[in-house]
Nucleic acid binder design. Structure first.
Length: 426
RNA sequence: GGAGAUGUCGCAUAGUUGGUCUAGUGCGCCACAUUGGAAAUGUGGUAUACGGGCAACCGUAUCAUGGGUUCGAAUCCCAUCAUCUCCGCCA
């Protein structure tokens, strides 16, 4: 959410954000509600002050009855005003949670991903001297998965990895975690089960009604819990209501969790191979920092993901996502896409996002500034570290050999017991 | 899952026959004084949010959370949550 004062003082900026991000403009409703809410607060507080004064006089008064009567009467007036205040404030609160984050000035403006800009391209897609196999053929011939079996047992959009590919998946995960630890991240194993409030805090959803997320989140039947779609949800709320010291910042967390998604809007898409499931494993980078250093941290996070993809020896490109494509809570977003030979296209492996103070307002995560002693909201950022099994797809497709074996990227070989390749006819 | 206990202003605590509690004390922290410097000591200060005000400042709320009783609640009632101890179950 945004700061009410900011909206009050910069309505045009906020209206513009609603426009370029494709969200309904509720700014005028907010402004008029805000005026009434403040009016009511002033009135009720003045009356309460009067009532408190009377209450203090009563114990020592000789004639208590008239004071009690007066106090009682003021109490009734306050109750009426409060009823209206509660209603108006709830409405205002809901609308405030429908205002999107202001996008960065350098973000491309556009309605959807067609307005995204390619920032840079690293590496060149390999030219094969044989006909490369798509991921599912490699998976089949090497016995690295059992799609029909798993679909039968667990349903659609689930997967299992078998044998050496499962080992490689674990090696990649370990590699990324170790890399992030070496860059100053604290590794956190996050629970996949959480409360809807934490999902709300992450700021992906609009409004203050938590029930709307039922369409997108797996609720655990008969409980008040749900399955988290990303470790970001847990990491973001890890300092809820804290006042951190400036010296603690930036806080860097590398969170691992299995992620659960309904993929309700993706029916029929990516049904073959290891691209899209109801569950997957992800190492997430997450940072709490001073707002002034947010841009610097964004580059840091983005670079970490680029390094990981580079270490996997994959051609990739970096995208600047447009205002319409970046989502409700984001200031800016850069997707990192790797080359998928079977699709003859670059596809997303991770997404680096600056959230500004949007999530921090929802979690009430603040820090005390050394110089001024002022308490301010922190800025938060997140990026993928690695998402599996999707990241395995470009790895096996780009590094495949004619015999169906797959070369292991050099940096991963130590974690694979020194092996240089897996699969094929040994 | 069963039984019991607890939850106070950074930490530790006082406060439970409702009203000098606008929450006391100790520690910590900050400032000043004292000192050649320090320790010790002394004095003062020490939260967050919101509303009002150019400002100094004033007001309101917060004693786990949410309700309730009352003119008035840290204190009484109800619900919820969390923590601890024991039992049960279990990777």
């Amino acid at each position: 959410m945004l700061d009410m004062k900011f909206i009050r003082e910069n309505p045009e900026i906020v209206k513009n954000a609603c426009r370029v991000k494709n969200f309904p403009d509720v700014v005028d409703d907010i402004l008029s509600l805000d005026v009434r809410v403040r009016e009511l607060k002033t009135i009720t507080q003045t009356k309460t002050a009067e009532k408190n004064k009377l209450s203090r006089e009563i114990p020592t008064a000789t004639d208590k009855a008239p004071l009690i009567a007066k106090s009682k009467q003021i109490g009734e007036e306050i109750a009426n005003d409060l009823a209206e205040l509660d209603e108006k404030e709830a409405k205002l609160n809901d609308l405030l949670h429908r205002v999107p984050q202001i996008p960065s000035a350098d973000a491309p403006v556009g309605a959807d991903d067609s307005a995204n800009i390619e920032v840079r391209r690293v590496g060149t897609p390999r030219t094969f001297d044989f006909t490369p196999r798509p991921q599912w053929e490699l998976l089949d011939m090497n016995g690295w998965w059992m799609p029909e079996k798993i679909a039968g047992v667990c349903g659609t959009r689930t997967y299992c990895l078998c044998g050496e590919l499962a080992e490689l998946s674990l090696a990649i995960q370990t590699y990324v975690i170790q890399k992030l630890i070496s860059k100053g991240f604290k590794y956190i194993e996050c629970p996949p089960v959480t409360k809807p409030q934490a999902v709300f805090n992450a700021g992906h959803f609009m409004g203050s009604d938590l029930s709307i997320m039922n369409d997108d989140v797996f609720m655990l039947s008969g409980t008040d819990r749900c399955l988290a779609a990303t470790a970001e949800i847990i990491l973001n709320s890890l300092h809820a209501d804290d006042i951190l010291t400036e010296n603690e910042l930036p806080i860097k967390y590398a969170g691992f969790s299995t992620c659960f998604r309904k993929e309700a809007g993706a029916a029929g898409r990516d049904t073959r191979g290891l691209v899209r499931f109801h569950h997957f494993d992800k190492v997430e980078q997450y940072i709490f920092c001073r707002p002034e250093e947010s841009d610097e941290m964004h580059e840091f996070l983005l670079n970490n993901l680029c390094e990981v993809v580079g270490d996997l020896e994959l051609p990739y490109r970096v995208i600047a996502n447009s205002t319409g494509d970046m989502g409700f809570n984001k200031v800016k977003q850069n997707d990192v896409e790797a080359w998928f030979p079977s699709e003859n296209a670059y596809r997303e492996l991770g997404s680096c996002s600056s959230i500004g103070q949007f999530q921090a307002r929802r979690t009430n995560t603040r820090y005390r500034e050394n110089a001024t002693g002022e308490v301010k909201f922190v800025a938060t950022l997140n990026n993928t570290g690695i998402a599996l099994p999707r990241a395995l797809v470009p790895v096996i497709e780009n590094h495949q050999n004619a015999d169906g074996s797959v070369n292991i990227p050099k940096k991963l070989q130590p974690l694979m017991g020194g092996r240089t390749k897996i699969g094929g006819k040994h």
